[in-house]
Simulated scan of single mutants.
Amino acid sequence: MTLQKNVSFSNAITTMIMHPMHANAQGSVHGGELMKIMDNVAGIVGFKHSGGKGNVVTARVDELVFIKPVKVGDIITCVGQLTYVGNSSMQIMVKIYVRDLTNYSEPEIALSSFFTMVHLKDGIPASVPQISPVTKEEEELYILGERKYLENKNKFSK
């Protein structure tokens, strides 16, 4: 019997305010700063899913899409959700939502991406539990994740 976990078990969310140290001289937050936050959240999702044993490293970042600029003073919320699991790899959808508190706006998606994280033990890829999608959204993301996983695997196995 293969160990399985619910997708929601590994979800991770972090919220923070953007400061001048995150931005350029015009007050726009550097894309690299936002990517670092996304990578950290993806790592937390992978670490939680792998049971906190060994290490989790970034193997791939797909489709990083910048949708809305983030400015100094904005509140961001970064959300990571497991979408698909291979043997040792985990595909994680990560989104950053931005909220401008000066006009009480609703959060809007600022960035979106898929991260592939690999679980390592002693530097060698190690297996992770499979996932059990529960909701319709989780099932749809699982199908998308499986398709992306197979496309990438076929692309680089040649």
Rank of each mutant, 00 (worst) to 15 (best):
L3P: 02
K5M: 11
S8E: 15
S10W: 03
S10F: 00
I13L: 10
I13P: 04
T14L: 13
M16G: 11
P20F: 01
M21D: 14
H22A: 03
A23P: 04
G27T: 10
S28H: 12
V29R: 08
H30M: 14
L34Q: 02
M35V: 06
I37Q: 09
G43V: 08
F47V: 06
K48S: 01
H49F: 01
G52C: 05
G52D: 13
V56A: 08
V57Q: 06
V57R: 07
T58K: 06
L64H: 00
V65K: 14
V65D: 15
V65H: 13
F66D: 12
I67K: 15
K68I: 05
V72W: 08
V72R: 10
I76E: 10
T77M: 14
V79P: 03
T83F: 00
Y84P: 00
S89T: 12
M90R: 04
Q91M: 11
K95V: 07
V98E: 13
H119D: 14
K121L: 12
P125W: 10
A126E: 13
A126Q: 07
P129E: 12
P129T: 07
P133C: 05
K136G: 02
E138L: 06
E139L: 04
E139H: 01
L144Y: 08
L144A: 04
E146G: 01
K148V: 12
Y149N: 08
Y149Q: 10
L150P: 00
E151D: 11
N154A: 07
K155H: 11
F156I: 05
